[in-house]
Write a protein that binds this DNA or RNA. Structure first.
Lengths: 218, 218
DNA sequence: AAAAGTATGTTGGAAATCCAACAAGTTTTT
DNA sequence: AAAAACTTGTTGGATTTCCAACATACTTTT
């Protein structure tokens, strides 16, 4: 089990915890590792969650079904990322599914054990809580920024809001983004082709320069 | 200071902490209370945040300015609610403003002190961390649901997604919501009048019944 | 009880988005 | 190196949303 943990020791959740503390952590937080084949379900909608996951290897997908039963992908989980923590701490049943899209290994941690330090108040506990607060807060900031973009009325405004936030993040008028056109359109909640057209217009109007994933605000 | 705390002792953050523990908490977390007149700024965009706030009395507004300088209200803070915690824990500068829209009293707590229990590991610390994790996770779930609604392409789908989520929350096909039409339109990111028209259509098509804040899914 | 203010529904033309289809360029596979 | 698969940009008509203006109902103030 320790060998598996080594693979993710620089993940945001475990970062800063000494190697010699890892094994006491495993016991203290009732850690278990589970393996999933491609296509298997990791968390089902309706599950009561009291553990959250840290993906060690493979790839997962968070999906959701709307009122008509249409499936949509909410996010993709890569190794070293955590998932399910929000539902674990609000103590609600999950409204999302998590599925393995590759053969995967997941470390589950007991959410209650993590937030309630044991009597001897192990030092790694403090660090874990800090890391977890950081991670969830960070997700909140990102969700808020996505909402900021999506709240704009026109595609042009959505694009400019997104690009301006990216520019701030990169502290420069020039930057590259990690999304391709389709992913960006999905992120902003608009049609890819309409967005492409709008990008061209922004370019022709001399407001931006761009090529592939590279952008420059003028 | 203790008297002020009494007013918010059933807030989600402080809930479950014994009265006799409150005073040691005040010291341990370097609490300070600040007062603001109507119109005063509580947090400025660009501020480095290492404390977060618990509103004791009054009313605050979280606002943001887009790339053109247009102001928009992100949320309204009522007494007993906390604010600024996301920026405090990601250790980034705030990208939002918080302003008092009524004469207000705010309790500030040191975010670092809260997440790093002191040597004696006071019991209230554990409870605070739990409460904080609950609060942030809950915001996370709410933001995700808002995004789920806003991601829908048409106003009709946005409405039905929202209503279906409310129905699940209330565990019933019939329920009342806390938003008026304008607030609902803002929440979904659409035009009020267009949304009203869409609601009428849903009613005529026999998909829902509604009157004011009361809704029934058929 | 009248007046003013607020919330909601309705409507029609202007504007924006969606959608489907295709062209051109790029990357990956064979 | 050719073929296949994928990505991006373009276009035009159908659909949807926005916007502004107004009617009606309900609430609050005077």
């Amino acid at each position: 089990m320790i060998e598996e943990l080594e693979k993710v020791k620089d993940s945001i959740l475990i970062k800063g915890i000494k190697t010699q503390e890892l094994s006491s952590m495993l016991g203290c937080l009732r850690c278990v590792i589970k393996k999933y084949d491609k296509g298997e379900t990791v968390i089902s909608e309706g599950d009561k969650i009291n553990k959250f996951g840290l993906l060690i290897e493979g790839k997962l997908q968070v999906v959701q079904y709307d009122y008509l039963g249409n499936k949509s992908v909410v996010s993709v989980i890569e190794p070293k990322q955590i998932f399910g923590e929000a539902f674990a701490y609000v103590d609600k049943i999950s409204s999302l599914d998590v599925e393995a899209i590759e053969k995967s290994k997941v470390l589950f941690l007991d959410s209650d054990k993590l937030s309630t330090p044991c009597e001897n108040c192990c030092t790694f506990h403090k660090q874990l809580v800090k890391n977890l607060l950081y991670t969830i807060s960070n997700k909140n900031v990102n969700l808020t920024q996505k909402i900021e973009c999506m709240s704009q009325r026109t595609t042009k405004e959505k694009l400019l809001t997104f690009l301006s936030l990216e520019s701030i993040k990169n502290n420069s008028k020039e930057f590259t983004i990690s999304l391709d056109r389709q992913a960006l359109a999905d992120y902003l909640g608009v049609e890819r082709s309409a967005m492409s057209a709008e990008l061209s217009k922004l370019r022709n109007d001399g407001i931006i320069e761009c090529e592939k994933n590279w952008f420059k605000l003028l």
